[in-house]
């Protein structure tokens, strides 16, 4: 861990209010926390929509109604759709509960996908290296339907880390896996965090998964109730 901690995520008084016709539904009521570079943090939310809202905002899939979100030194709270896409491409690696791989597409192409949109060079080598780092060296030409759930999730992790993002954002990454594969996935995250200093954010409702992280931020009813410090 680096001696001087730099915050990679600074969230200050973020509010998100959805409008359902005339009714305003608050999902986040002023959330503030920081995540340092190289941390492995779990964000736990027992239920409710606050979790996915927070996950969408951290992942630059959505913008807050008010408040400030600084990601890796860049204020990303008010960006256009295409600017958000650029941030997602460069700074965020997503791992989803449903894996979200492209159908009928070999693992290697899945992992190359973010680099295709970035126009990055050496895509093939970098994709191969990423797949190797998650232990899928032998499966690079397999399609999702030829892979187990755990293997599919590992392809997704390879896709997330291939662009060297500032954060890896995992949304219930073990939710669709049996406990053995789930444990393997968590171990991959731990290894990446420890050996490469990757910042990993696990969004979950499961306390046993959250317990694997170094720190847990608890959110309830749209507010941070415990930031784990």
């Amino acid at each position: 861990m680096p001696p001087v901690l730099q915050p990679v995520i600074q969230i200050e008084d973020v509010k998100k209010i959805y409008k359902m016709g005339e009714v305003e539904v608050p999902a986040l009521n002023g959330v503030s926390f920081q995540i340092m570079t190289g941390e492995m943090v779990a964000i736990i939310e027992p239920s409710g929509s606050g979790k996915s809202t927070l996950m969408n905002i951290i992942g630059c899939l959505d913008t807050p109604t008010s408040g400030k979100y600084i990601l890796d030194g860049v204020d990303v709270s008010k960006l256009t759709d295409d600017q958000q896409a650029g941030i997602r491409n460069k700074k965020i690696g997503f791992v989803f509960q449903q894996f979200n791989l492209l159908a009928r597409t070999p693992a290697l192409d899945q992992v190359e996908l973010p680099m295709v949109y970035a126009g990055a060079p050496d895509r093939r080598q970098r994709a191969l290296a990423a797949l190797e780092s998650v232990g899928l060296k032998e499966r690079v030409h397999h399609r999702p339907n030829e892979l187990s759930g755990g293997q599919q999730q590992r392809v997704a992790i390879a896709r997330a880390l291939v662009t060297n993002p500032s954060i890896i954002l995992a949304d219930e990454p073990t939710g669709n896996l049996d406990s053995k594969s789930g444990a393997e996935i968590i171990n991959i995250f731990k290894t990446l965090n420890r050996d490469r200093g990757l910042t990993v954010i696990l969004v979950t409702h499961d306390p046993t998964i959250a317990a694997q992280a170094q720190r847990t931020i608890r959110v309830r009813d749209g507010l941070v109730v415990n930031n784990g410090n």
Binding site: G86, R88, N100, L102, L113, P114, Y117, R159
Partner: peptide, 8 residues
């Protein structure tokens, strides 16, 4: 998925 990984 494409948009999540950065497609504009």
């Amino acid at each position: 998925i494409r948009k999540a990984v950065g497609a504009r």
